[in-house]
Computed example of a mutant assay.
Amino acid sequence: MNTGNVVIFGANGFLGRYLTRHYLDQGREVAAVARHGEGIDRRAMFLPWDGRTPGPWSLALEGAALVVNLAGRSVDCRYDESNRREILASRVDSTRAIGEAIAACKVPPRVWMNSSTATWYRDARDRPQDEWSGEPGEGFSVEVARAWEESFFSAKVPGAVRKVALRTGMVLADEPGTVLEVLRRLAKSGLGGRMGPGRQRVAWIHMEDFIGAMEHLEQDMLADGVFNLTAPRVPTNAELMRTLRETVAMPVGLPAARWMLEIGACLMRTETELVLKSRWVVPARLEAEGFGFRWPELGPAVADLLERPGVEGFFGRPVKRSVGHRAWVSPRRVEPA
């Protein structure tokens, strides 16, 4: 099991809250760095920051075992000029500030994992995209992804600091306000049909496999560079929505044509790219290293999450949950038979 202090940036976001609970349940000390402490487990040490400049939080990096940067403004918005600037700056500036703070450490952290996105790859409908042969895409989201990684890998930190960029797909979890909750509600209401053509691929990963992959990458002293954090089986949008309908026992699902999605996105202040781009992204490096996915198939993964007792409001009923989330011990390497 991995040990040592963990520093999580963007700790008040969905992934940050989940990871904070997980590492605390493992008995590790966690410094939770965010603009505000709302929603952060009280067992963690909360440290405020502005997301742009080094500050007192920098002291938490001294001798840390793991630094995880999840900071970045949500892309679930309209891509107007103001939001574009904020989306880009929130990722590049936060990464630069962390790099400068690590460079100033007397005892630098062992591992620095930085968020990235599976959107880095092109709209792929002909073949899967992996870390070795995948091709970069075009457009604003891809420009952000490339600038984000460039800021990370160009940071001049001591050579002993191992860097890992996490090109993550859609993370499915039993948490309120996440994409699974939104999709489940659509399916439950009879609106869970295919979106657009339905042939676009959806890169996803179960939250437990996301955590398991991070533990694997922290433990593997040779793991560095880019890793795709996605499940090995990548369904189409039509398959995803059908799976959700089957899970909630809804026999019908009205499809949404592209023009309908455009109107809906405008009303909801978001972008259709989030559902129309084909993200056929596979975890070639994780699989090559023998990482064992507990949830490689979408159907069992969705069924598992939707059958869990969620927090109040997730399934429309109040359910109590302890402060700490249940610990997940991931498989490490699958030994050959």
Rank of each mutant, 00 (worst) to 15 (best):
G10T: 00
A11T: 01
L15A: 15
R17P: 01
Y23G: 02
E38F: 05
E38Q: 13
F46L: 11
G51M: 10
L61F: 04
G63V: 12
A65K: 05
N69I: 08
G72H: 07
G72L: 00
R73P: 14
S74V: 10
S74T: 15
D80M: 05
N83D: 08
A89Y: 03
S90Q: 02
V92E: 08
T95A: 00
R96S: 13
V107I: 11
V107T: 11
R110N: 09
S115W: 03
A118Q: 03
T119A: 11
E131L: 07
S133N: 13
G134T: 04
E138S: 13
G139I: 04
A147E: 09
F153G: 02
P158Q: 02
V164C: 02
P176C: 14
E181K: 11
L183N: 10
L186V: 13
S189T: 14
R201V: 09
E215M: 03
L217T: 09
N228Q: 04
A231E: 02
R233T: 05
V234W: 03
P235S: 07
P235A: 09
E239Q: 13
E239M: 09
L240P: 02
R242S: 14
A249T: 13
M250T: 15
M250E: 11
L254K: 02
A257L: 07
W259D: 14
M260S: 13
L261N: 10
C266Q: 14
M268R: 15
T270L: 00
T270Y: 01
K277R: 04
W280A: 05
P283H: 08
A284V: 15
E289V: 12
F293S: 03
R294I: 06
P300K: 07
F315M: 14
W328I: 10
R332W: 08
